[in-house]
Lab assay of single mutants.
Amino acid sequence: MKTQEELTEIVRDHFSDMGEAATLYVQVYESSLESLVGGVIFEDGRHYTFVYENEDLVYE
């Protein structure tokens, strides 16, 4: 099982292909040891929320 830090790095790496991230945040109260819930805000103003669970990243 991966730590939240490892899950955060996986998510950060995925979003790095989409541009320069200004902020990546984790909603600790919705996350667990198995999943990471949060969002990313890019330098150009785009904002996505995400759920990373079971090696699957879903974002909108």
Rank of each mutant, 00 (worst) to 15 (best):
M1D: 04
E9R: 14
K2H: 06
D56Y: 14
V26Q: 00
E60K: 09
E34A: 11
V28Y: 13
L33M: 09
V58E: 05
E6I: 08
G19I: 08
E6K: 07
F42D: 01
Y59L: 11
Q4M: 13
M1F: 11
D44R: 02
V11Y: 03
E20I: 14
H14N: 03
S32A: 11
D56F: 14
S16P: 05
V51R: 07
E43D: 08
D13S: 14
V40R: 00
V51T: 07
L57G: 01
E5R: 09
M18I: 07
L36I: 11
S35H: 09
L33Q: 09
I41L: 06
S32G: 08
D56A: 14
D13E: 12
L57H: 04
D13P: 03
N54S: 06
E55S: 12
Y59D: 02
L24A: 02
F50W: 07
E5K: 09
V26E: 01
Q4Y: 12
R46T: 07
V11R: 03
Q4W: 13
G39N: 05
E60I: 13
I41S: 01
L36F: 07
V37L: 06
H47L: 07
R46Y: 04
R46I: 05
F42I: 01
G45V: 06
G45P: 01
Q27H: 11
S32Y: 09
Y52M: 05
T8W: 13
E6H: 06
L33H: 08
E34P: 10
I41C: 13
H14Y: 14
V51S: 06
D56N: 14
E5T: 07
D56K: 15
L33R: 12
E53L: 12
T23Y: 15
S16Y: 08
F42M: 06
T8Q: 08
G38R: 02
T49I: 12
T3C: 14
E53P: 02
Y52V: 04
E30P: 04
V51E: 02
V37K: 12
R46G: 03
R12N: 04
N54H: 08
Q27P: 03
V40E: 00
D17H: 15
L7D: 02
G45D: 01
L24D: 03
G39A: 11
V40A: 03
D13A: 15
N54L: 08
G39Q: 10
V58D: 03
V28I: 12
A22E: 07
H14W: 14
H47W: 10
F15M: 04
D13N: 14
F50R: 00
R12D: 01
V28R: 04
D44S: 02
I41E: 02
V40K: 01
Q27C: 15
E34N: 14
T49Y: 11
I10W: 07
F42Y: 04
E34W: 08
Y52H: 01
T23D: 07
D44G: 03
E55C: 13
H14A: 10
T3K: 04
E53G: 04
T23S: 08
D44Q: 02
L24T: 00
D17F: 14
S35T: 12
Y59C: 12
H47N: 03
E43W: 08
Y52L: 07
T49G: 01
V40M: 02
E20C: 15
H14V: 09
V51Y: 08
G38Q: 04
A21T: 12
E5W: 10
Y52W: 10
L24P: 01
A22K: 13
E34K: 09
Q27S: 12
Q4L: 15
M18A: 04
S31Q: 11
D44Y: 10
M1N: 10
I10A: 05
I41Y: 09
D44H: 01
E34V: 10
E5G: 05
H47M: 07
E60L: 10
D56E: 14
F15I: 03
S16T: 08
V26P: 00
M18C: 14
S16D: 05
S32N: 09
D17Y: 13
Y25A: 03
Y59A: 03
F42L: 05
G19V: 06
F50G: 00
F50D: 01
G45L: 05
G45K: 01
Y29H: 04
Y29C: 12
I10M: 08
A21D: 09
M18E: 04
L33N: 12
E20W: 14
Q4H: 06
G19C: 14
R12F: 07
Y52T: 01
L33Y: 09
R12Y: 06
A21K: 11
Y59V: 12
E53I: 13
E43V: 12
L36M: 06
G45Y: 08
D13G: 13
V28L: 11
I41F: 09
S35A: 09
D13F: 13
D17N: 14
M18N: 03
L7G: 02
V37W: 09
Y52N: 00
T49D: 03
H14I: 14
D13C: 15
E43P: 12
S35R: 15
G19M: 07
G19R: 05
S16G: 07
L7P: 01
H14C: 15
S16K: 14
R46Q: 05
R12L: 13
S31I: 12
E43F: 08
F15H: 03
Y25K: 02
G38W: 09
Y25M: 05
D56H: 15
I10N: 03
M1E: 06
E60S: 09
M18S: 04
E30A: 07
D17A: 15
V40D: 01
D17W: 14
N54W: 11
A22I: 14
V28M: 11
Y25N: 03
E9C: 14
E34Y: 07
I41P: 00
Y29R: 00
M18H: 06
E5M: 09
G38I: 14
Q27K: 11
Q27I: 15
K2R: 10
I41H: 05
E55N: 13
L24E: 02
E55A: 11
T3M: 05
Y59R: 02
D13H: 14
E55M: 10
G45N: 02
V51L: 05
S32K: 09
K2D: 04
E34M: 09
E6W: 10
Y25P: 02
M1W: 10
Y59W: 13
K2T: 04
Y25S: 03
Q4S: 05
E43C: 13
K2P: 09
N54K: 07
E9F: 07
Y29W: 09
D44A: 05
K2F: 06
G38S: 02
T3R: 06
E9S: 10
L7Q: 02
L7H: 02
E5Y: 08
R46E: 02
